[in-house]
């Protein structure tokens, strides 16, 4: 039972990272029905950007006290801003012109964009794993036989806080309403006076910024990254988005945490090598019995 609770903690931390990435997939899909395959690579870029910022700040080991909060804030916000801008540039350069093209064109472009980012990162940081400094003191708390690390709490906390902020933004602000309107009906949104180009750019900005935050968290959590890291993580986060119901924010969060938990539990109770098989089997089963995902709405888009 202790092992179960230990894996529950591990799975939730892992899931927090997947959930943050999944939000970007689901937001972009929700608004322009594009599976942005480059999104996983934006997440890896987030880790590299964080690393670059830490290097600029001259931080290469554990920081204590108030300075830690400053370092964390600057690094996370910096990575979010840089990734956000990367997302906006990708949309502007690669996807906007293809908005009215057949669906396959932007999809192939997204795969191409993914290759471009991966190779840029390969060129920038080389083919080997790059170590990520341990900046936070990582005290461990024992709950009976279960150990919780401080960084696990940070991962889950950051994921939950960012999701609450996002949810509030999307449902309670004017721009958030504009995003939802654009997602539901682009022509009608324009007739309301909404500038859909700006709204779509904003969606890429936010989704990519969340991937940036996930990138930082992943560096901190795993202690290293490499240029190809986003491929596998991106695929699982995308699975999480589909599992929860693509286009649905709460679904992406739920899916992310579920995938993290399934992965952790499979690794523990079956075997490490089976974790991907189980994760994707769950996806297949959900799609067979609930094609719109766990929280996906079956209300038709157009009546």
């Amino acid at each position: 039972m202790d092992v179960f609770f230990q894996q529950l903690i591990n799975g939730l931390s892992l899931g927090g990272i997947y959930a943050l990435i999944a939000l970007g997939y689901t937001m972009v899909y929700g608004i322009i029905e594009l599976i942005n395959f480059a999104h996983g690579d934006v997440y890896t870029l987030g880790t590299f950007f964080s690393l670059a910022i830490l290097t600029l700040l001259g931080v290469d080991s554990v920081v204590h006290g108030p300075a830690l909060i400053g370092v964390l804030a600057v690094t996370i916000l910096g990575a979010m801003i840089l990734c956000g801008l990367t997302g906006v540039i990708i949309e502007r350069l690669a996807y906007r012109r293809l908005r009215n093209a057949p669906k396959l064109a932007p999809l192939i472009t997204a795969i191409g964009m993914s290759f471009i980012l991966e190779n840029l990162m390969l060129y920038w940081r080389g083919p080997s794993p790059v170590p990520f400094p341990q900046v936070i003191p990582n005290p461990q708390f024992a709950l009976g036989a279960v150990t919780i690390q401080a960084k696990q709490i940070i991962v889950v906390l950051l994921a939950v806080v960012l999701m609450v902020v996002l949810q509030t933004f999307v449902y309670n602000t004017r721009l958030g309403k504009a995003m939802r309107a654009t997602a539901q009906d682009k022509d009608a949104a324009q007739l309301m006076g909404i500038d859909i180009n700006t709204t779509i750019a904003l969606t890429f900005l936010i989704g990519s910024a969340l991937a940036g935050a996930a990138g930082f968290v992943s560096g901190m959590y795993y202690g290293s990254t490499w240029f190809f890291n986003g491929f596998g993580a991106g695929l699982k986060a995308f699975t999480a988005a589909v599992l929860g119901g693509i286009g649905n924010l709460a679904g992406a969060m739920l899916g992310g945490f579920l995938i993290g938990l399934i992965e952790a539990m499979t690794t523990q109770f079956i075997s490490d090598q089976w974790s991907n098989v189980v994760v994707f089997s769950v996806l297949v089963l959900v799609l067979i019995f609930r094609p719109s995902g766990l929280l996906g709405e079956s209300l038709p888009n157009k009546v």
């Binding site: 539901q184 007739l191 309301m192």
Partner: peptide, 26 residues
């Protein structure tokens, strides 16, 4: 200029209230 398009094009997953609020977006 206001435009009620052919086929209505209301925002299906929003409430009447939210639809009207969006009408006043400008």
């Amino acid at each position: 200029i206001g435009h009620a398009p052919e086929g209505r094009h209301v925002f299906p997953r929003m409430t009447v209230r939210e639809n009207l609020e969006l009408g006043a977006y400008t």
